[in-house]
Simulated assay, not measured.
Amino acid sequence: MERPPNLAAAIDAAAEALVNVLDSTASRHQVSVPPTQLRVLSLICARSETNVNRLAELLDVVPSSASRLCDRLEATGLLRRAADPRDRREVRLLPTAAGRQLLRELTERRQRAVQAVLDRMPARAQNDLLIGLMAFEQAAALASGEQQKDPTVRTA
């Protein structure tokens, strides 16, 4: 396959197709939690020591905005706040069992949707896609680490 003249645009279009496959699983199954709240819940599940200030940093928003997002998740029973056992002045954000279950179900649906597309691709193309995405992930992590070292650069 020949390299397209605008590689970034071609990758952006392909990534959009992947995002559409992933997003369609939530809309088809009437997930009642908005995408931003799902992202918050996912970040909190992945980081057990998260508090509102750390969440705000991860989302690149002010703490009051992060707190309001948490309020909504808490009202739906997907998140709870708890005093940090090491410092009772700190409040940790914790997913509830319902929150973890929602993310598990959504992850399973997303993986099935991706697998359905992969099944239409030749095995070699599947392998090439995986290798390329893994290399992209590593490069993005390196770029993120470099940006975090530079206090003038903010990441989303």
Rank of each mutant, 00 (worst) to 15 (best):
A13T: 15
A82F: 05
Q37G: 08
L93C: 01
L78S: 03
L18M: 14
A46L: 11
N127W: 02
V21A: 12
R92E: 13
Q111M: 14
A113C: 10
V40A: 05
G99A: 10
L118G: 00
A13E: 14
I11F: 08
L69Q: 09
L7D: 06
L41G: 12
L142M: 11
R88Y: 05
L78P: 04
S24G: 04
A10V: 06
L103H: 03
F136W: 12
V117W: 00
S32Y: 08
R124Q: 13
A15D: 06
A139Q: 08
R72T: 11
D71Y: 01
P95G: 12
L58W: 08
A135R: 15
P4S: 01
P95V: 10
G77D: 11
T36M: 10
A82W: 01
L69K: 13
A15K: 03
T76E: 07
S64Q: 14
D12N: 12
R100E: 15
L18D: 12
T50F: 07
L43E: 05
R112E: 13
R39A: 15
I44L: 05
D84T: 08
L133S: 06
E49C: 00
G77S: 09
A83Q: 11
G77E: 08
V33M: 12
A14Q: 02
Q138S: 09
A125M: 08
T36Q: 14
T36I: 13
L106H: 04
Q37H: 13
R81N: 06
E108C: 05
V61I: 04
